[in-house]
């Protein structure tokens, strides 16, 4: 259960980025999590909500993109999603394959909004 530590790391990145644009409010932060990253998305959401609640960042949305466990064949170049840990190339049956995805734990983006835009009544569509 290290999702709390990860949530704090995400929050720290948000604060660093937010400090660069003090006239805007952070609304949503995007992260990428690989299937093989040993991280539980629901636990991460729970922790993130818990540490932002009752703070100036309450309501900050966490957008999690799950990245599949992917391999590339060194022989034929075919890229494929690994099912049931079968790392053999489904196209040419080669065993010479390498992992190219599934271990991500990345910050992707931060969405910010001019202060006042959200409180003006409608969600900003600009």
């Amino acid at each position: 259960m290290h999702e709390m530590g990860i949530a704090y790391s995400v929050l720290a990145a948000v604060r660093t980025e937010a400090a660069r644009c003090p006239d805007k409010a952070p609304r949503k932060v995007g992260v990428r999590i690989g299937e093989m990253s040993a991280l539980d998305p629901d636990a991460l959401r729970f922790c993130f909500e818990a540490i932002t609640r009752d703070t100036d960042l309450a309501g900050l949305e966490l957008d999690i993109e799950i990245c599949p466990f992917r391999y590339r064949c060194r022989e034929c170049g075919h890229e494929f999603v690994v099912q049931d840990y079968q790392s053999q190339c489904p196209q040419c049956a080669s065993l010479e394959t390498e992992c190219i995805g599934g271990q991500e734990l990345d910050l992707v983006y931060l969405e910010v909004e001019e202060y006042g835009a959200a409180t003006a009544g409608t969600k900003s569509t600009q």
């Binding site: 995400v10 644009c21 734990l105 983006y109 931060l110 969405e111 910010v112 909004e113 600009q126």
Partner: peptide
């Protein structure tokens, strides 16, 4: 709404 790219590891400091 403005989207700022971050593109770095969550655990980049570690």
């Amino acid at each position: 709404m403005e989207r700022l790219p971050l593109e770095r590891k969550v655990l980049s400091e570690n």
